[in-house]
Amino acid sequence: MKNAELIQRLRVQLKQLEQEVLQHDSQLVKGQRNLLQDTERFNEGLFNQTGAQLAPCIGQLSKKISQLEKLLKGNISTDTILLSCEGIQDRFTAVRRALNTTTLNVKSAEQQRASRFANAKKRRQQSHAESGFGWIATGVMHNSHQLYDELNKHMNWVQTFEQKIENLQSKLENCHSADKIALQNEILLVHRRLGKCRQAISYIEDRIQAFERPYKSQNR
């Protein structure tokens, strides 16, 4: 086969592949693009490309064909020419394989995401069980709106406890000595409740971050 015929045949083959790739990319939905955005679809050295869309491969393949055309015009060994041709055909095969495996890759990515969410949920439940805050309703831990409601409730309690401590301190300064021990014990008790409430606020804030982090990553 003459050199010009070889290049022409490769360019025709590339044009046909380009049409298939454009159709493939146009049919991708946003969810599929998001799932595969960080997925490497090809072996190292074939293409510099990640994600569901395959259009970038066409431009890279076109450059390889142009490089081969230059080699054919120069005084280059047959082995080098054959190696270049094999590399181009490997890339054609890889793109066609990617066209046929997008659905499988999406399903695999969905399973991996579901597994990550399940593991994250399990870790949150375990952390909740070990935190010592079992008095916070378990159902709240799985709903961001209820978490924020719980956070606001505890913040209001903090204000209430702080105000109560201030009032008790004022009474303590003016009470009879016989009543001081009882007031001091009451102040100590409210301080403990205040400390517990502040710990709960920190815990709930951590739960909010853990709950929202996977969804923020997904919607990037």
Rank of each mutant, 00 (worst) to 15 (best):
T102I: 14
T78E: 04
E20C: 08
Q16E: 12
D90N: 13
T78D: 01
T101F: 03
Q23F: 07
G59V: 02
R91I: 07
S144N: 11
L54Q: 06
F117Q: 15
L46N: 06
R123F: 05
Q146R: 14
N100Q: 12
L35R: 12
A118F: 09
R116A: 11
Q49G: 01
D25K: 05
R9T: 07
L61E: 05
R113P: 02
L83H: 01
N34C: 04
T78G: 01
A98F: 10
L28V: 02
C57E: 02
A118E: 06
G51A: 10
K122W: 07
E86F: 10
Q19V: 08
V29A: 06
N105E: 08
G134P: 05
I136V: 14
A118Y: 07
I7D: 04
A98S: 12
I58E: 07
I7W: 00
R9P: 00
L68D: 02
S108N: 11
I81M: 01
L71H: 01
L99T: 09
A109T: 05
R9F: 05
G45A: 15
R116M: 08
T80V: 11
S66W: 03
V95D: 02
E18A: 11
D38L: 09
K121S: 14
A109K: 03
T93R: 04
A52T: 09
T80D: 05
D79I: 00
Q49L: 14
N48L: 14
L54S: 06
Q23K: 11
E20Y: 08
S84C: 02
I81N: 01
S127M: 06
A137K: 15
I81L: 04
L36E: 01
A55K: 15
S131A: 13
L82G: 03
N48Y: 07
Q27C: 07
E110N: 03
L22E: 15
E110W: 04
V12K: 02
N143D: 15
H128G: 07
N43F: 11
L61M: 13
A137G: 01
L36C: 04
N119M: 11
A52R: 08
Q27H: 02
L82E: 09
L28S: 05
L10T: 00
K70R: 12
F92R: 14
V106W: 03
I7Y: 02
S84T: 03
A137Q: 12
K70D: 11
I76D: 00
R41P: 09
L46H: 09
N43V: 01
A118K: 15
K121T: 15
V106L: 10
V12A: 04
Q111N: 13
A109F: 08
T93V: 11
K122L: 12
I7G: 01
A114P: 00
V106A: 13
Q111Y: 07
N100P: 00
L104M: 09
Q32E: 15
P56Q: 12
M141Q: 09
S115F: 11
G87A: 04
N43G: 13
L28T: 01
I7S: 01
H145R: 12
T102C: 14
Q111D: 10
H128T: 03
H145A: 13
Q112S: 10
S144I: 15
L104D: 09
K63W: 01
Q67K: 09
T103F: 00
P56H: 10
I65L: 05
N34V: 14
I76F: 02
F117K: 13
E40D: 02
K30Y: 09
H142K: 12
Q19M: 08
